[in-house]
């Protein structure tokens, strides 16, 4: 009796698996993949690097000395427009690093993706950076990425110098520190159509164009914002930043 029962259960189980189980590429929800965002940093047509002069849309020669940008809340969609569950991960994007893990997802295909630029309002106004280790993206940083006075994260810190005299000396400082919940932005929803490779990795290649971040900003007359102090300039930069990402 027992033997017959177990054989029956086994047969049903195998049948169910055969009928509803995974078929390569047709039922991608059965596969787990690791998602990575690979950033390429550009200034217009040139590769971007800190301490390197570039000419902005106003014809000014500028040089970035700092670029720290938070991105978070990666979202992915399948080909039917359905959301794919992703981990809540925060990253601090630094020009010296190009590849960022967005965690594992339960599929081998991503059709669209998007992410937040900055820190979402819930985390921004509830998290205490002192509770994280220093090497955690949300922990304290040097230079600071958390305001001590109006407390919240600095979503993007872009500092550098302008050559105002046109003599090769970049000696006029610009300081663009974008924060405040009102300036949290989402990227566009990018069409990526990426299938996991043999190592179960999905690599999404994104370009960040710094020329677009400062496009339309007259940096000599608008050299500084800490968001609260010149909110309109910070808003313009936050909007520019969210539109400065493109996907290959």
């Amino acid at each position: 009796m027992n033997s017959v029962f177990f054989k029956l259960v086994g047969a049903i189980t195998i049948s169910v698996l055969l009928i509803f189980g995974c078929k390569p590429d047709e039922e991608p929800k059965c596969k787990r993949s690791n998602v990575y965002l690979n950033f390429k940093y550009k200034f217009g047509d040139s590769d971007f690097a800190l301490e390197t002069p570039y000419t902005n849309s106003q014809g000014e020669s500028i040089m970035f000395t700092r670029s720290d940008v938070y991105f978070s809340n990666f979202k992915a969609q399948d080909k039917n427009g359905g959301g794919i569950e992703t981990a809540k991960i925060y990253h601090l994007m630094l020009p010296g690093q190009t590849r960022y893990s967005m965690g594992a997802i339960a599929t081998n295909y991503v059709d669209h993706c998007m992410f937040g630029i900055g820190i979402d309002s819930v985390t921004n106004k509830t998290v205490d950076p002192n509770t994280y280790p220093l090497d955690h993206p949300l922990g304290n940083k040097s230079p600071n990425m958390y305001w001590g006075w109006n407390q919240g994260y600095i979503f993007a810190a872009l500092d550098g110098y302008i050559d105002t005299a046109g003599n090769g000396n970049h000696d006029f400082k610009f300081t663009y520190h974008i924060g405040l919940n009102e300036l949290y932005r989402l990227s566009k929803s990018f069409k990526v159509a990426k299938i996991a490779d043999a190592s179960s990795n999905i690599d999404i290649n994104i370009t960040l164009d710094y020329a677009k971040i400062v496009d339309g900003v007259h940096m000599q007359t608008e050299p500084s914002t800490h968001s609260f102090s010149d909110f309109e300039l910070a808003k313009k930069l936050a909007d520019n930043l969210s539109g400065a990402f493109t996907v290959e």
Binding site: K125, D128, P129, N130, L134, N140, K141, S142, P143, N144, Y146, G148, W149, N150, Q151
Partner: peptide, 24 residues
């Protein structure tokens, strides 16, 4: 501007016109 006592220490600690050091 600071919501807890534990967080307010970052204000003077980081401010370049006060202690200017930072938590790190």
């Amino acid at each position: 501007g600071a919501r807890t006592i534990e967080l307010q220490i970052l204000g003077p600690l980081q401010d370049s016109n006060e202690m200017g050091l930072g938590m790190v």
